[in-house]
């Protein structure tokens, strides 16, 4: 017996889960795979999945790096709400008394509607980064501060109201199509490309994994561990800001109380399903992307199957749990041990 065992690449399990969900739809959901063109735009369930998953995808990419440094950022839902609220406010020209009849509205330039919310989000991310890297708070606690306070801030910004608007230019962000493809998905692809570039063309990817794997050793090796952690949280804030722009633009309004609520959980789930360990170290960006697709196609499937919405969360939880159990180390150890025993018994 000279052969040595080959391990399966870790992406196999999430891909298989995604495949199963798609297969289920291929068999049971009519027209799930059909894609039509209307007014030069692509339409269909698959396209819908790609469009809807974009905000989560963008945040999950950043979350992958945060988790790889053995951190977590649970404030992104609230940062998203702040970003959206600031954007909506700017569309209203900063005029919070917009409901008073006849108020003269002068929207800010599109450039500012986009850039200011992103800057605000990055500042908030920087705050998280400082709390974690310099003050030394536990990431969960550090970002819990903004998770709670951030939503309050968003509600203050919008005066506790749902801030609806109409603005042709800004609406393109969440509702537009480019070359037939939903624009949010194009943004998501761009963010993924940006992240991949930053982590591959600079040593950032290496440093993130080093810091998450052994912070002391990284420090001894000369890595500025605080800076790495700080930058990762800024990026997380930035991504939450983009997601906020997309969602606000898509629903042409900012609902500070509910926008992005619990979305941090979807992002975290996607990362974990994708095979990045919560304990930090090695990350798996491709896995995260598949993880987001799993979560979204599951949601879409449940909706198109007409399952009562009360069950959505439950079904989602069951599938996610199944993927996680299959992936866990204990399961793979168990499989290894039993196969070893079985082959032993077979040999005897």
């Amino acid at each position: 017996m000279d052969k040595t065992k080959k391990p399966l690449p870790s992406i196999v399990w999430p891909l298989a889960a995604l495949g199963l969900i798609l297969l289920f739809n291929l068999i049971f959901t009519d027209g799930f795979f059909s894609i039509t063109i209307k007014n030069g735009h692509l339409f269909g369930s698959l396209i819908d999945i790609l469009k809807r998953c974009s905000p989560t995808m963008i945040m999950a990419v950043a979350m992958t790096y945060v988790i790889a440094t053995s951190g977590i950022d649970i404030s992104i839902g609230s940062i998203l709400a702040i970003s959206g609220s600031v954007a909506a406010l700017l569309v209203w020209g900063g005029n919070t008394s917009y409901l008073s009849a006849g108020a003269d509205v002068q929207p800010a330039a599109l450039f500012f509607i986009i850039v200011v919310p992103l800057l605000v989000s990055m500042v908030l991310g920087a705050f998280n980064g400082l709390m974690v890297s310099v003050v030394g708070l536990q990431p969960f606690i550090a970002t819990l501060i903004l998770m709670v306070a951030g939503r309050g801030m968003a509600q203050l910004l919008t005066g506790g109201k749902v801030l609806n608007f109409s603005h042709k230019g800004f609406e393109f962000v969440g509702r537009g199509y480019l070359l037939g493809i939903p624009f949010p998905f194009i943004i998501a692809v761009l963010v993924i490309a940006l992240a991949a570039l930053l982590t591959k063309l600079t040593p950032m990817g290496l440093y993130i994994q080093a810091v998450g794997g052994n912070k002391t050793a990284s420090h001894y090796s000369g890595i500025n561990t605080r800076m790495v952690i700080f930058l990762v949280y800024i990026f997380s804030g930035f991504c939450a800001g983009i997601a906020g722009l997309i969602l606000t633009s898509d629903i042409t309004g900012a609902d500070a109380g509910f926008m992005g609520l619990y979305m941090e959980l979807d992002a975290i789930l996607a990362v974990v399903i994708g095979g990045t360990a919560m304990s930090g170290g090695k990350y798996n960006l491709k896995g995260t992307i598949v993880g987001v697709l799993i979560i979204q196609s599951l949601t879409t499937t449940i909706l198109t199957r007409g399952v009562p919405p009360e069950y959505t969360l439950l079904v989602k939880a069951v599938v996610v749990l199944a993927v996680l159990i299959i992936q866990s180390k204990r399961t793979s150890d168990f499989i290894e041990k039993t196969t070893a025993k079985v082959s032993k018994a077979g040999a005897a």
Binding site: L206, G213, N214, T216, S221, I223
Partner: peptide
């Protein structure tokens, strides 16, 4: 264990780490 190895990274990444920082 505490001050040197980054367990999940490859032999290669562990070797070049400090050089890259430099």
């Amino acid at each position: 264990k505490e001050e040197s190895i980054i367990p999940d990274l490859s032999v290669k990444e562990n070797i070049i780490l400090a050089l890259q920082v430099k």
